[in-house]
Deep mutational scan, measured.
Amino acid sequence: VPQRAWTVEQLRSEQLPKKDIIKFLQEHGSDSFLAEHKLLGNIKNVAKTANKDHLVTAYNHLFETKRFK
């Protein structure tokens, strides 16, 4: 089981690129989880459509539901 890579403050910070969060989610989330949160596909394309709040919610949801690969 992966550990949380970032704190809530870090997740919301401008310093953390959306692409980093997407990469983490794609590496650790199950396909059904990723599909549900519309996070499947090319990281660049996902970054265009997903806002930061959406990614933070998905990140927290992944750990709450433990839907890891």
Results as ranks from 00 to 15, higher is better:
residue 25 L to Q: 00
residue 27 E to T: 09
residue 13 S to L: 02
residue 23 K to A: 12
residue 23 K to F: 07
residue 46 V to P: 03
residue 27 E to Y: 04
residue 17 P to Q: 13
residue 30 S to K: 05
residue 8 V to F: 07
residue 50 A to K: 12
residue 44 K to G: 14
residue 39 L to F: 03
residue 14 E to P: 15
residue 30 S to E: 11
residue 30 S to A: 10
residue 29 G to F: 02
residue 37 H to K: 06
residue 3 Q to M: 11
residue 18 K to V: 11
residue 10 Q to G: 04
residue 52 K to V: 06
residue 14 E to D: 14
residue 43 I to V: 12
residue 45 N to R: 14
residue 17 P to H: 15
residue 6 W to E: 04
residue 3 Q to D: 14
residue 61 H to R: 12
residue 60 N to K: 06
residue 27 E to C: 08
residue 64 E to A: 08
residue 21 I to K: 00
residue 12 R to L: 15
residue 16 L to E: 01
residue 17 P to M: 09
residue 62 L to S: 00
residue 25 L to S: 00
residue 68 F to H: 03
residue 11 L to Q: 02
residue 64 E to S: 10
residue 25 L to R: 00
residue 37 H to L: 07
residue 67 R to D: 12
residue 47 A to K: 12
residue 41 G to S: 05
residue 51 N to G: 11
residue 42 N to C: 14
residue 14 E to M: 08
residue 40 L to E: 09
residue 60 N to E: 15
residue 33 F to R: 00
residue 15 Q to L: 11
residue 45 N to F: 15
residue 21 I to F: 02
residue 14 E to T: 13
residue 42 N to R: 09
residue 20 D to A: 10
residue 60 N to A: 08
residue 42 N to K: 14
residue 28 H to C: 08
residue 54 H to T: 11
residue 25 L to G: 00
residue 32 S to K: 08
residue 53 D to G: 07
residue 20 D to N: 09
residue 27 E to A: 10
residue 22 I to W: 03
residue 38 K to P: 01
residue 31 D to C: 14
residue 29 G to P: 00
residue 7 T to M: 03
residue 20 D to C: 12
residue 5 A to I: 15
residue 56 V to H: 03
residue 6 W to I: 03
residue 11 L to N: 01
residue 34 L to T: 01
residue 49 T to R: 14
residue 18 K to S: 13
residue 8 V to D: 15
residue 41 G to A: 05
residue 54 H to Y: 08
residue 64 E to N: 07
residue 31 D to E: 15
residue 68 F to M: 02
residue 41 G to D: 05
residue 33 F to T: 00
residue 3 Q to Y: 06
residue 50 A to W: 07
residue 23 K to R: 10
residue 51 N to Q: 09
residue 31 D to S: 12
residue 43 I to K: 07
residue 58 A to T: 06
residue 2 P to C: 10
residue 36 E to K: 06
residue 37 H to R: 09
residue 61 H to P: 00
residue 65 T to Q: 11
residue 67 R to N: 12
residue 2 P to F: 04
residue 59 Y to C: 02
residue 47 A to E: 15
residue 69 K to T: 06
residue 33 F to L: 02
residue 15 Q to M: 09
residue 32 S to C: 12
residue 68 F to G: 02
residue 32 S to A: 12
residue 67 R to A: 14
residue 36 E to W: 08
residue 58 A to W: 03
residue 17 P to S: 09
residue 8 V to H: 09
residue 20 D to K: 14
residue 53 D to A: 07
residue 40 L to F: 11
residue 2 P to M: 05
residue 12 R to E: 13
residue 14 E to A: 15
residue 57 T to I: 14
residue 14 E to V: 11
residue 2 P to S: 04
residue 13 S to H: 06
residue 63 F to W: 07
residue 33 F to G: 00
residue 14 E to H: 12
residue 23 K to N: 09
residue 28 H to E: 05
residue 62 L to Q: 00
